[in-house]
Design a protein around this nucleic acid. Sequence first.
DNA 1: GATGAATGAGATTTCATTCAT
DNA 2: TATGAATGAAATCTCATTCAT
Lengths: 202, 202, 202, 202
Amino acid sequence: MAKKIKKVDQNKAKKKKAIFESAIENFAKNGFHNTSMSDIAKSAGVADGTLYLYYKNKDDLMIKVFNEMVDEKLELIQEAIKDEKNPLEKLYKVFEYHIELFTNNPDYVRFFVQEVRQSPEFYDRFPDFHPINKYLSLLEDLIKECVDKGYMKQIDPVLAAKILYGSIDFILSEWSLRKDNLPLKNIYKNVIDIFHNGMRYE
Amino acid sequence: MAKKIKKVDQNKAKKKKAIFESAIENFAKNGFHNTSMSDIAKSAGVADGTLYLYYKNKDDLMIKVFNEMVDEKLELIQEAIKDEKNPLEKLYKVFEYHIELFTNNPDYVRFFVQEVRQSPEFYDRFPDFHPINKYLSLLEDLIKECVDKGYMKQIDPVLAAKILYGSIDFILSEWSLRKDNLPLKNIYKNVIDIFHNGMRYE
Amino acid sequence: MAKKIKKVDQNKAKKKKAIFESAIENFAKNGFHNTSMSDIAKSAGVADGTLYLYYKNKDDLMIKVFNEMVDEKLELIQEAIKDEKNPLEKLYKVFEYHIELFTNNPDYVRFFVQEVRQSPEFYDRFPDFHPINKYLSLLEDLIKECVDKGYMKQIDPVLAAKILYGSIDFILSEWSLRKDNLPLKNIYKNVIDIFHNGMRYE
Amino acid sequence: MAKKIKKVDQNKAKKKKAIFESAIENFAKNGFHNTSMSDIAKSAGVADGTLYLYYKNKDDLMIKVFNEMVDEKLELIQEAIKDEKNPLEKLYKVFEYHIELFTNNPDYVRFFVQEVRQSPEFYDRFPDFHPINKYLSLLEDLIKECVDKGYMKQIDPVLAAKILYGSIDFILSEWSLRKDNLPLKNIYKNVIDIFHNGMRYE
DNA sequence: GATGAATGAGATTTCATTCAT
DNA sequence: TATGAATGAAATCTCATTCAT
């Protein structure tokens, strides 16, 4: 009996996972508006109607998939930096890990950088949809710690976080969309150097 | 006779201009997918079918409008910096002007930051659509000059340009979408300071 | 063993009853087309599939429920008039009871007056669905008796029954749909007076 | 030039008329919910999308068609009775004409009697949709005049109008749906007799 | 060239019904 | 028997594009 229930639940979980991944893949490849629910269903190997058993509608599907993906990645990042004590090293590790994660999942990059910037109307309709905010908060906290502990000079953590995020995000985006041949894996060192030591000639 | 032809041509030019501006305005306000050809035609005061006399289809209209808009803004920027000799000052003026332009045209920001990031599939279909590239080239050239003339240390201009662009772009995007209350007008000084002097405690 | 079977049968009967009542309630409140099988199943506390163990399909469920409801009400009416000997009084009591029943179950009125009028195509498909006929027959019989026994002049009972039914039905419908503030409870006296004594000035 | 414009307008008018009549026919035959926009489009010989050039949506189509039909018929009725001075005769002529009109257009009867009784939710959404009210008003006014001028005894015109309307409506409905073989054309005399002189034995 | 009515493919979503468990 | 996840047909509606005038 217990076995039976388990099987059904396994099936449900498998199906949800399939939908989740098909959604990411399709949104990533073609964008939200050029991806139809039918496309996702077909990729996931389920009927169109099945999508609506798991998600209320297309918006809901997109938001849930997005949020879940971000949460998943953030957890990995936080796990990866939890043993590092030095806040500066922590900050740099975040980048290193961020880049590494996306390098290994190019679809995620595309999805992330394309769909995260939705229309104002979208933000108006879904005020809770601010997945980047969590990431920005993480950066802000680390920067604040760096400043407080004397690793950085007095700078506005909110602004600095945006600068850091914007840089990495754009680099990843270009890498993904234009198939840049930048050696992405080692790029974070250059980024860090520019931010930390500035560009000025000494 | 010659006069008549001229008048007709003037009319044509006027009509094309009207379509162009209506398209920008509508795309900017509502995004590509939430703007119908009918919307644009109505704004421009022409019939739906008329759009197709000047542009092959909706994609074509969008790309041409986008590219032309970028060219126009870039020209303004280049005009604004042409008297400055110091490449570093030039670079910073680019930012100042960039921010100023978008501050005065918030709709443009949205259009630019939302629509510029198309799907890979879109780039495959329209390989000529790289409006940002021109801007990045400008930055790269200036950075290279800075390096060459000893204003900056040896850094990769391509990477540095992306970092600068990504930072500003994201800040503008956040400002526009989330109605940030950052004092945008003076922000460029902080950005420049971070990049130029680094974040490290001295 | 016998006991066990009985219990199962009791369960079955209970379940069928639950479905029946949930169906009425839902159809009455929201109409046939705005009630889904799922709605009914949920109200009845059974699974969607269970409905199909007791009814062939949605149409079948509706027709059976409708017919049974009418039969139930008719039985109540017949019970209420069975001690009355005077056919005229009997006729008037039918009305009184009819109005009273619906006044106490406004949802039923809506169901009755809305759904009872089906499309010709529906009647073609389900020739057995003539719930009103039974009611009309009752009226016709009473009118005939009135005529035969000299309580009424020579009129066509079929026509007269339709006139009486149509009047009451429309008044109830208006009362229900437009939330008329007609004092429904006492209205039947006026109706009877008009029919019995006519409208002419004497 | 004038001819040209006329032709286009003629075409539009013809198309609108075709949609109007197809809508009535389909609604009449199958009811609102069992008629799809595609059905109507097909009957009218136009594309699905064309319906939306003339009507905002399915509800709008139904309401506009209904109201227009009622207005048209009411105008005919008012034209037909305008020379009659005696209010009682006027009232009876209304019935005569009402029956005659619908006898000649059985589809109209079905549409009228089926769709007029919509769900309460429908009335809530479209408070302006009370096509019957106009007809009821006409009856009320005539009855009031009859009472005032001594042709009828003191009765409530609102109630009396509903009784008269409900009777005729139901008779027509039965005639239409069940293909009654009642001699519809002369029936109004019997109806009038019952109402005017009552049913009682004298 | 200019028009705008007409088209019809395609998108989202619902829901009666089935069937493996 | 009972379940309820899954199905997929069908409905409404939008809109880029065409073409007769």
